[in-house]
Every structure is written in C-alpha cells, then in structure tokens.
Design a protein around this nucleic acid. Structure first.
Lengths: 215, 215
DNA sequence: GCAAAAGTGTTATAAATACACCCATGA
DNA sequence: TCATGGGTGTATTTATAACACTTTTGC
C-alpha cells in the first residue's frame, strides 16, 4: 500500500449513535442541535469524527461523552453508511451504533463546545436531520425492533427491577403496535433474558405486580 | 467538523473479501500472495484500500478485479475491524465482505501488479495471513454458516441447475459436519430459495437426480 | 360495586428434529 | 447380485399465535 496515494487520503470515519429511550409510553431518540458548520443549527444524531488513534467504539463513547455528558453507555454496532457524498467536506465513512438508556437516570447536557441544545424526540416527530441521519435513524429503529427479542439491549432501560407490564409497555412503544400480552410474558420468561427477583409490589395503585431483572 | 484536525487525517479504509468456494467436497477460500510491502510474500485475503471517491462496495469490487481478475461477484458486508493498530503504516478501518463463487467457472489471475500468486486454500489449511486476516476469515466462516440457511448466498456456487445431493454436499462441506439428508431436503424445499426445473438426469452414474435452480 | 391493572391456560398451527427403508443403475 | 447413490414419510418436540376470564385494589 502506497500511503502517499492521494486517493487514500483525506478520508475520515464518522461514528453515529441512535440513543433511544422510552418515557411515558413514548419511544424517543436523543438528538443534539449542532453549533458548528456544517449543518449549524440543525438537529442530528449524536456523533462525530473518529481519531486515527482510536478504535471506533472508543471514538463513539468519546463523542457521546463530549456532546451529551453521558458515560458507560452500552452500544451495538449495526451498520455502515458509506456513500462518498454523505459528507460534503470530506469523505467520511459512517459507522452507526444503537444505544438504549433510561432518560430519567441520566443527565444530558444542553450545551457543549459543539452543541447548542439536546432533547429527546418522539420517533414519529423527527425533524430533518444533518447529513444522512434520517436514513440512519430509520435503519436503527428497524434494527432495534429485532434486537429486543434476541438480546438484552433493553437492560439499560431497566437497570434495576421492573415489572412485566412495564417491560411490555416499552416493547409496544418500540414496536409501534400492541402485541399479545400473554404471549409476551410466555416468550420473555421462556428465553433466559430475565428472571424473577421474588419481590412484588403495588406499582400502579391497583394490583401488586412481580418484579423481574435482566440476568 | 474541523477537517484540518490532524487526528482526523491519515486514516483509510481497507476492503477485505473472504471469497469462498466448494470444490470436490472441500470448503476453500481464495488467497493471494502479496508482492508489495507491507507483508510482501505473505498470503492474504483479497482486498486493498478504498479510494476517497468510492462507495466501499465499489472499492471492494475494484480490488477484487485488480487482484484476481474476477468481476460481478455478489458480496455481502458482514463486519467491521477497527483496531487502530491493525495496520502499522496508517490507521486503516477494515470493512469485511463475504463472497461465494464456483471456482471452476472463473479464472483467477496468478499474477497482477500487486500480487505474485493466488490460490484456493482448504479452510483447515490456512497459512498465517497478512494483517488481521486470519481473524477476519474466522469471522467470515462463522457468518457464512448462518447465511446459507437464510439467504441465496450459494447462488453463484450453482449459477445453473444443480441436484439436491450436490447442494447437500456443499452445505456439509461449509458446515464441517454431515447434517441430516432428509431434513435438509425438506428445509430447502420449504423455504422458497430454490425451485425444481423439471429436468432430471443421471449425474453420478447411478440413479437419476432431479435438477433445481435458485429462484 | 366498579373501574383499572395484574395474572393466568388452552388450543391450533408451524417449524425443527430424529430416524429407516425402497428404488434405479452400472459394474 | 450387489454396491452406490437418490428418493421418500412419520412421529416427536418445540415455537408461535390466537384467544378470555379471574383476582386484587383504590376510589
């Protein structure tokens, strides 16, 4: 490889996170408002450019920390966005991640060195985003819908104990439809993703509900 | 984004293909012998660096053409290899693809501007490879084992008609184990990946076999 | 006592697995 | 006639899907 070949140069790597939450039965994603060109004043997913010294996952975590203040997020790589024209300034390969978090247990900085606002947006009320982030977000939503049935990706949404009705509501919000409540219980309990804690408590002011936790 | 930030610069993208075939019941992968530094005289997977003007898939196809002569390969992206130290000369993000082809229907160039040899290697006789290609190949093999049951990824291995025993042997070779022959037929025919052509012919010198094709 | 929320079971269908014998052909 | 290879069916288990009533509690 001739590292002086100009065609190999001036390329970079974008790391881009779709960070989801469910709050009050609404499926939401974290967006930031950019305070730099390009796309100054536009909303975007959380992300930025990878340093040449970093693993991409390390870069993703650094960017999330810089632009939201959040640390220790669990992230799953899910796809690559590689059209050369997806960034006008320079060829940037887009590496896209999914994260899920309980928005009540984290504090998101509204302003940082590079952002002037940050907020959780309902999935069906997403504004036009910077770069190709609308496309990336669409793909992330579809991926998340499959991941919730195969992985413990919702673990951070319920880091402590939770009741099955609470988890059920989160599933319905993410899927955008009401699935069968009894089959949901059966499936979740037959997989070994969650286990009962033995506690039960009145959460909704009606009947007591049993508590579970992710294994 | 400040495109003059030196941390963003001097990064590149490697595209790397694990190109598989099955020949005489042996599961094989195409390796090339490098004729350039780094890793001169080492065997490696087929690949190279992406131009900043290219989509990564376009780059992958160009590299395959340059280093093997093959065109029109169907390729599936399957994972990213991003350790900054995976290439000593420059930070190179590794984008890994899988391809499958019938080695008898293609001609692979033994020598090119950048390679001094090329050959099909049995999967359990892989030499030490350049870069992190041994690791990438291992991951590609595992991915292929799942893809053959969900996709038509073996279509190019049987571009024309084939008999079910032929396809069965390819599956066993790839999986490295003999699966149940009757269940294999049932599963393949119940999915809608293949369909009968109506022809049958004596292929092995014994009983006639029916021909199928990928839809 | 009634509205709201939690808990529970059965049946039907589809998919996955395990397993053994008969037929056609060429040598 | 026998060795080789191709073709086929059934029973079991497991996963998925559809579907309705009872219990607890606060008001």
């Amino acid at each position: 490889m001739n590292i002086n070949n100009p065609l190999y140069k001036d390329q970079g790597i974008h790391v881009i996170a779709s960070i989801f939450t469910v709050k009050d039965g609404k499926f939401k994603v974290l967006l930031i408002k950019r305070d730099n060109e390009p796309f100054k004043d536009k909303w975007s997913l959380v992300g930025g450019a990878c340093y040449r010294t970093e693993d991409v996952l390390t870069a993703m975590k650094r960017e999330i920390k810089e632009k939201t203040g959040m640390k220790n997020l669990k992230l799953s790589f899910f796809d690559l966005f590689s059209k050369p024209e997806r960034c006008a300034l320079m060829r940037m390969l887009g590496v896209a991640y999914i994260g899920v978090i309980d928005c009540d247990r984290v504090e998101v900085m509204k302003k940082t060195a590079k952002t002037k606002d940050a907020d959780w947006f309902e999935i069906d009320r997403i504004p036009p985003l910077a770069y190709d982030h609308n496309e990336i977000l669409e793909a992330a939503i579809e991926k998340l819908k499959s991941l919730i049935f195969d992985t413990d990706i919702l673990k951070e949404l319920f880091p402590k104990n939770f009741t099955l009705p609470e988890l059920y509501k989160a599933y319905c919000a993410i899927l955008g439809e009401n699935i069968d409540r009894r089959n949901f219980r059966k499936k979740l309990l037959s997989e070994n993703l969650i286990e009962p804690t033995g506690f039960e408590e009145n959460v909704t002011g009606k009947k007591k509900a049993k508590f579970y936790k992710f294994v």
